[in-house]
Design a protein around this nucleic acid. Structure first.
Lengths: 146, 146
DNA sequence: TTCGTTGCAAAAGCTTTGCAAATAT
DNA sequence: ATATTTGCAAAGCTTTTGCAACGAA
């Protein structure tokens, strides 16, 4: 198994909470880590099925919550009405740019925007915890094929 | 009826699409316009019931879609797993600051952030259409009562 | 051996849809 | 008169939950 650090983090989280590192959880972690970008439950479900046919959707839902709680995953709301996850451990913070036509997702990071967000929160006397920022537009490719 | 402009916009939108300005739609528009801030379907449903007991949820869902299409309303995703609407016509664009404890929502507008968003889109060769930006934090009041 | 975990199916939300009756133009 | 709209109930989706069987420590 690769991803030694992530596995260790997950193991620690589970141990600290009297939980077990089970086979389904191992499989889900591995599939999650091997998947690039953003993934929905259904996608994870299909991919875990290729490793172990018996893993059910409910187990994926439950395991993904644990991955979020352990700090390995993050839930995004890029897709309406569906849960969507993304790796967060070992990756830099970023926000998203979504093409409204082809649904392509690009990542960006803008330090100045982050700084202004911090300032805005302060001005409103909020202790900033996190933020969602997603830009919607039409990518070059889709613009040409209109 | 107040809100002459909004009513006219809605009437025009409906007429252009061979749709009728019905009593339920009038009631829903009025309730929507009279409500401050962000509202969920259930809230609109309760409020319309006080004007007309017979209006059903489905009609609210359908009417809110029309209000969005006519440019009077905007759908926000401030509340997970639920539709949430907000007035947009006659109001300045703004983003949101949400207290994760008491769920209070404040509005803000930061021109520099908007400018950087525009620049970011250009850099990625996207034609920017819109954006979502929500800051999550703990408000002063909740910070004190911890 | 004990207690946490799993898969299944059922339940729970919110939202959409089919349809006959009602209504706007 | 005719085409749109309505309210209801049913269906559709995604997500959560209850529970007996299973599995990790």
């Amino acid at each position: 198994m690769e991803y030694v650090q992530e596995l260790k983090i997950f193991e620690n989280y589970l141990a600290e909470n009297n939980m077990h590192l089970t086979r389904p959880r191992k499989v889900i972690l591995q599939v999650f880590l091997q998947t690039e970008g953003h993934m929905e439950i259904e996608e994870l479900f299909e991919k875990t099925k290729m490793v172990d046919k018996n893993i059910g959707r409910a187990t994926i839902y439950r395991a993904m919550n644990l991955l979020v709680e352990s700090g390995l995953a993050q839930e995004n709301s890029l897709i309406e009405d569906k849960k969507c996850f993304e790796r967060v451990y070992g990756r830099k913070h970023h926000d998203h740019l979504v093409c409204t036509r082809c649904k392509k997702i690009e990542e960006f990071h803008h330090p100045m925007i982050e700084r202004f967000q911090e300032k805005t929160a302060k001005k409103h006397q909020f202790t900033l915890i996190s933020h969602h920022m997603t830009l919607f537009g039409v990518c070059q490719n889709c613009n040409c094929n209109m």
